[in-house]
Nucleic acid binder design. Structure first.
Lengths: 129, 129
DNA sequence: CTTGACCTTCCAGTGAGTGGAACCCCTATG
DNA sequence: CATAGGGGTTCCACTCACTGGAAGGTCAAG
């Protein structure tokens, strides 16, 4: 199957698939004209990658997860460790964003938002400490 | 004042300050030897930028906010609109991350994490739909 | 035979910096 | 006076995970 079909099957853009080959995540075959030729196992990997990326795993995480996925002798502890680390990073990000959200929504709430220049948002940003 | 002092005052790395000059956010003077010479107004702007960046505003947002900050005839509505848009983006990001968090914590909870290969994390990622 | 939809490679750009090389300037000390 | 160090300067490359686009090859339908 050509890249267009693999893209449709996996839900990933063809550009992304080429990129994944570039960085060695997948190794589709080539036909006589140089077109990439995807096996079922390739599209299966692409779906795996799409899901892992949708969960926010980095490409390097994906590479490691893919290797564990392929290794039937893996220890689930190794997979779990990657996932737990990533979960912790997500939780940190959420906390950071929630802190921004609190500050910002306070500022927005206190700003009249009319045609006058007085603005607590700018005041707070420009406050001399 | 030289860049080192401006960095200390503003809490921004010197490299970042040079970058902000590069992209036209600040315009420090130069002394006879080519060294940047920062006025109080420059460090004040840098502090403004540091706070706005800490709230997650993009550089382009910062550029606009800075212009509004400098414009005493601004309408607070313009500031508020930028902040509200950004707030909405933050809320979307939080929701996305929370969705990842839910999925991931479920997967982590259901994974034994021992030396056996069975792993619901990999199963879920590799599930044929 | 041509058209248009595919496919190929390669180069450049994104955002917001960061690291490092090579070089200039100023002060203090042996 | 030479030099060592701790500033400063520019410029180039790299990050991450793609994405856009140019220039050109391939294939099936009409």
């Amino acid at each position: 199957m050509n890249i267009g079909e693999a893209a449709e099957k996996s839900g990933l853009p063809a550009k992304t698939i080429r990129y994944y080959e570039d960085i060695g995540l997948i190794k589709p075959l080539r036909d006589t004209t140089g077109y990439r030729s995807f096996r079922e196992s390739d599209t299966h990997k692409l779906m795996f990658l799409g899901r892992a990326r949708a969960l926010g795993f980095t490409i390097e995480d994906c590479r490691n997860l893919l290797a564990l996925w392929e290794d039937t002798d893996r220890a689930s502890a190794d997979v779990r460790a990657i996932a737990k680390d990533h979960l912790r990073e997500i939780e940190v990000k959420i906390a950071d964003l929630q802190s921004m959200q609190r500050t910002l929504s306070d500022l927005v709430r206190n700003c009249a938002g009319d045609d006058r220049p007085d603005c607590p948002i700018l005041s707070q940003l420009g406050d001399v400490p």
